[in-house]
Structures are given as structure tokens and as C-alpha cells.
Nucleic acid binder design. Structure first.
Lengths: 251, 251
DNA sequence: CGGTTAATTGATGTGGGTCAAAAGCAGTGG
DNA sequence: CCACTGCTTTTGACCCACATCAATTAACCG
């Protein structure tokens, strides 16, 4: 269990400077995202004295462990990560991919024991806030509470969608759904050129997210290519026939 | 689409009286539950002038329609209901069974358009509160906000569990999980005798909840009977070998 | 007593899992 | 520059859990 405790933790310097430098070190150069990460948490929030803590976690490393507790709220500043449930048989089920600006979990504001694990997909920068501060702000700041609520509602929506997809849809529909879902979220931050989306996943992650085996994911992706629907490789997804993908992936 | 608009809506009389009479008419006689239903919403909450509205909905009727909007929050007072997502191909995926005392959805406090449908499983009594009141109380009443947060956290937990089960578990594991999950929730209100639990579901509902066909659910339930694990029929679940069920249904 | 809805059971089909081999590719070190 | 290693993806052969289709029974009900 190599969780955050094992990672280097440093206190942030001046906010603007730290954000920008964090972005520069991010492998995806998502400078625009870092601002997003703080829109939610609002500028005057402070942990103890020195401001929020920043943490860098290497690609593939575990960030949170299911059942573990922390008195911090995590916000992803740069890079990608994902939340998952670890099953007793060693399998895992990914239930959310985290993009810069996302809270790791909005519920973590009110629960100290995490019911999920989280892992870095790329090298990531994380910002940590004291739960007590966050919770207090939830009572006193209406704007803040609304922001949390929006994130909560979006989460509930996505989650219900994923349940429906896992319960009722075929392999290709599941993957189409996942692609469409991620595309939407990426497009919300990014300006996209030529329908090419950065998607730093392995086929294994897709499999873990939609309840298939990596072998079968590979086969389905092959048919997507043959049929001229979408081309996924090396962390880039290129959409060739959007209407068709949408037809398959729509609930 | 026969939603609530088509149902008889009447204003509540004196609270205590109405609650109790509601319970008497409930086919499951869950008198103890109704108190639960109001623990969350707290006694001094009022809609407009006349107090909360009560609604009775017959078994099998739709209560909320996905995409529909309402400016009320629904609380289930008696009977069972369920939330589901309606798919474009006519299938549905149940993602939560509602027991007396449950909010239909805690997110509905902050979203006016529902992302799910809801239907009565038995004849049910529902209590409706104005969203504006609910939301306001969320800002001003810490106790209330904590209660909402608890319900939210529990929901997120259950939801993550269900996703894992749908993505990674076999038919019998899914059904075992569902049984254990419901048993836990029932036992939280009820005193249970002889491991017999009232579960007013058809096999169709089980199928819709765990992503199987009713035919296959029937087969799995048969093996549960043959193996002396559990006996489900006529809305009653009897557990014969709890350890075995738990072994199968555990995440 | 027919009509309806739920559950059971059997026969058959198939989507996706499992197993295994091979190929591509990046990193590493000599 | 090349062999070696580890990781990911691809491909093929085979299998099985669950779906589908269909017929039968059971329970309920006006």
C-alpha cells in the first residue's frame, strides 16, 4: 500500500506561482485546467496557516486506499486519475475518471473513511484541504455549497448512467458510452482540434471501467477501427464517425 | 405516462394523526417506519401554509418520470418503491429500492429535473416538501444538513458497490449481494424474526436491479433453494444459510 | 370457468471469458 | 548498436454463463 503518506508533501508558495509551475510539470500541459481546480475551492480557503498543500504523485501510484481515512479533501490540479473499488478476488471496478479540477470525491467532505481507492493515471498534482475547513465553508458560504451540490448532482447522474450501462448494454455500447462520456468532459475544458482527444488510458483501464476483459476491449476497438467509427491508440482517441458512436453509446 | 399529476393529492391534517393513519393503510403495516420518514425532514418544516402534502400511490404506478421536473422533494412514508433509468430500447435498470423513511433522491434538493424515474412497488404513501424550503434549511440548519449528508454518503457507497457488482460479479453473486444489501436496510428499521424478511419484489424487479433476465433469476433462485441457502417467494425472503450467502455476496 | 400475470423448465444460441502464443515497443544496460 | 526485459496489444481456439425462445404450470380474479 503505497499511498500518499509515502509521497513528498510540500507547502504551497504563493498561489499563482505554484499553480502555474504545477502546470508546467504536468505531462499534458493542461495549463487551462489548473484555474478550474480552484474555481471550486475558492481563493481565500486556507489550511491551518500556510495555505493548501500540494502533492505530486507519479503515474500509476495509488493515492487513496479504500477503508483508509484522511482528514483532507483532495482536488486534482493536473493530470488524470481514477477512483475504483477493490474486489476481494483482486479485480477492480473503476467508477470514475478524474480530470483536473475534480474533487476526488464530493462525499469525502462528510465521510472520513473512503469507500473507494484512487490511483494516478498520469503523473498528477493534487491539492489538499483540511476537511474541517471545507465543511465549515459548506455551512457558511452559499456559493460554495452550490458548487459542491453541482458536483454532487453531476456525479449522481453519471453514476446512474454507468449502472444502466453495466446492467443492460453490450460490450460495444459500453465502450461507446465511455468514450462519449469522457469526450464530453474533456471538451468542457479543452478546445479540441479535429476530433482528437487526449485519453491517457490503457485498454486495461477501459476494461476495468466498463466491466469487460482487456482482450475483449481490444477486439471491440479493432472493429471500431475497421468500421471507421473511432481510432484509439497511444492515449489518443480520434472520432471518425460521431453519429454512429453516439447511436451506439446513447442510453 | 401516469405520474403523480394524475394522483389524488390532499393536504395533510394534523401531523401525528395523518402519519399514523397512513401507516394503518400501508399494506405492510410498517408503523415504525413512518417516524423514520420524518426524522430526516424535522417537524417544523412546512410547505406554504398548510404543512407538507401527502399522496397515496397505488402499487405499480409511476411516481416520477425521468426528465420531468417538480419543485417538490419526495419522502417515502410507507410501502416500497424503486428508482430506475429508462433505456431507449425499453429496458430499465433499477438503481435503488426505496424503503419508508428514504428521500426519493437526495440530489433532488439541488436539481429540478430528475435524472431517473420512480415507481411504486407496493401501495405507497409519499410526503412532499417544497424544494425551496428544503434547500433553505440546508443552509441554515446544521443538523439538517448533516442528515442530508449522511443519506448522500450512504447513497454514494451503495452506488459504488452496485457498479462493482454489475461490472464484475456472476449472476448468483449479484443476487446474493442484492439480498444482503436489502436485508441490511430492512433490519435497520425492523425487528426480524427467524430470518424471514418482507421483500415485496417480483423476479422481474430483481432482474432489473442486477442486470439479468427474469428467466435466469428464476434459475438462480431455484439453485439457492436446492442448496439450502435462501428461499424467496411471494414477497418473503427466508435466509437458510447466511454465511454461505454472505460468502457469495461479499464484495 | 376463461383470462391474465408470474414462475418454472427445457432446448438452443451467442457474447464475451479464458488460455495461450506472438508481435510490437519502450526502456535498460552492456 | 544490439540483446534483453517487461508491458501492452493483437489474434486464434475453445468454452461457458447467460440470453433467447417457447411451452407448461400455478396462482389469482372477475
Amino acid at each position: 500500500m503505497e499511498t500518499l503518506a509515502h509521497e513528498k508533501i510540500r507547502s504551497a508558495g504563493p498561489r499563482e506561482g505554484t499553480q502555474l509551475s504545477a502546470c508546467v510539470t504536468c505531462p499534458h500541459r493542461e495549463a487551462g485546467f489548473c484555474a478550474e481546480a480552484f474555481r471550486l475551492v475558492s481563493p481565500e480557503l486556507r489550511i491551518n496557516e500556510g495555505g493548501p498543500k500540494f502533492v505530486t504523485v507519479a503515474s500509476g501510484k495509488q493515492i487513496l486506499a479504500q477503508g483508509g481515512s484522511s482528514d483532507h479533501i483532495f482536488v486534482l490540479c493536473s493530470g488524470w486519475a481514477f477512483r475504483y473499488v477493490q474486489l476481494s478476488d483482486g479485480n477492480r471496478q473503476i467508477h470514475k475518471f478524474l480530470l483536473p479540477g475534480d474533487l476526488f470525491s464530493s462525499t469525502s467532505i462528510f465521510e472520513d473513511v473512503a469507500h473507494f481507492s484512487a490511483r494516478a493515471l498520469t503523473s498528477v498534482q493534487i491539492c489538499m484541504f483540511a476537511r474541517s475547513e471545507f465543511r465549515e465553508k459548506c455551512f457558511t458560504d452559499r456559493e460554495f455549497q452550490s458548487a459542491i451540490a453541482r458536483s454532487w448532482v453531476a456525479d449522481a447522474r453519471d453514476t446512474a448512467g454507468l449502472i444502466a450501462v453495466l446492467g443492460r448494454r453490450s460490450a460495444e455500447q459500453r465502450i461507446a458510452y465511455l468514450f462519449l462520456h469522457l469526450i464530453q468532459r474533456i471538451a468542457a475544458h479543452h478546445v479540441i482540434r479535429e476530433r482528437r482527444y487526449p485519453l491517457p488510458l490503457r485498454q486495461q483501464h477501459i476494461a476495468d471501467a466498463v466491466g469487460l476483459t482487456p482482450v475483449h476491449v481490444s477486439r471491440v476497438l479493432s472493429t471500431f477501427r475497421e468500421r471507421g467509427i473511432a481510432w484509439f491508440s497511444d492515449g489518443v482517441l480520434e472520432i471518425l464517425d460521431f453519429p454512429e458512436l453516439e447511436r451506439m453509446g446513447l442510453l
